[in-house]
Nucleic acid binder design. Structure first.
Lengths: 109, 109
DNA sequence: TTTATATATGAACGATTGTTCATGTGTTCA
DNA sequence: TGAACACATGAACAATCGTTCATATATAAA
């Protein structure tokens, strides 16, 4: 590395996680990085909702919601169950709530 | 949705956080949603580094690193201190490490 | 089957993003 | 001063993204 005075004794050279893992991590956070998806996740924070309910609640088109739900589903952030013609979506697990909560904590500093 | 009574006997979890807050949250996660920035954050996980060291370590141009450090700085994810001609960057606080860690946990499910 | 309803999806378009290249700013030392 | 070094920044371009629109699929009821 470059030559410059290092004041504290520097610990062992740290290694980064594998590149592939870092790409996956960025991909995951990118999913959280859109306000429509964030709104959908918060709408599902404490209950399950069907597609049209989400669209009505957030004043979005059915198509836009459906497209974004697919993204959320692919990232395993939401799960769904079909009941007749209706499909209900819910947060996949508490992990999702934790990530949202951590982000909120950072904003409130 | 439901109208809330004057004295709610139960918590009202169905309410979404204010729109502005949700936009800020999405903006925050968007910063984590790029592999270059994720790599920089991990490079700084346990030490401070100057710009050129980051560029060398991650095989990136000085300009690209500098641009991304500005994004990270604007989001309060990194802090910096100047020492002569050199500028050292470090993670701003443990919060950043927590968010990274939460994301990794989700991937490892 | 036919019709109605709920959801999913493909194409396309405008908007945003991350990089490179060139240059500007700030600091040190001769 | 002036040269050299470390870093920051503006413009521009390709690539990616989220929406709309049109249409497809799936289920239920008639």
């Amino acid at each position: 590395m470059a030559e410059h005075p290092t004041f504290p004794a520097e610990p062992v050279p740290e290694e980064l996680p594998a590149d592939e893992l870092l790409y996956e991590l960025a991909d995951l956070f990118r999913v959280f990085g859109d306000s429509t998806r964030i709104k959908i996740l918060y709408a599902l924070h404490d209950r399950e909702l069907c597609v049209q309910d989400i669209a009505n609640l957030l004043a979005l088109s059915q198509s836009a919601v459906s497209h974004q739900l697919r993204v959320l589903k692919d990232s395993k952030l939401v799960r769904f169950r079909r009941e007749g013609k209706t499909v209900f979506y819910a947060l996949d697990d508490d992990h999702v709530r934790s990530i949202l909560s951590m982000g909120m904590d950072h904003l409130e500093e």
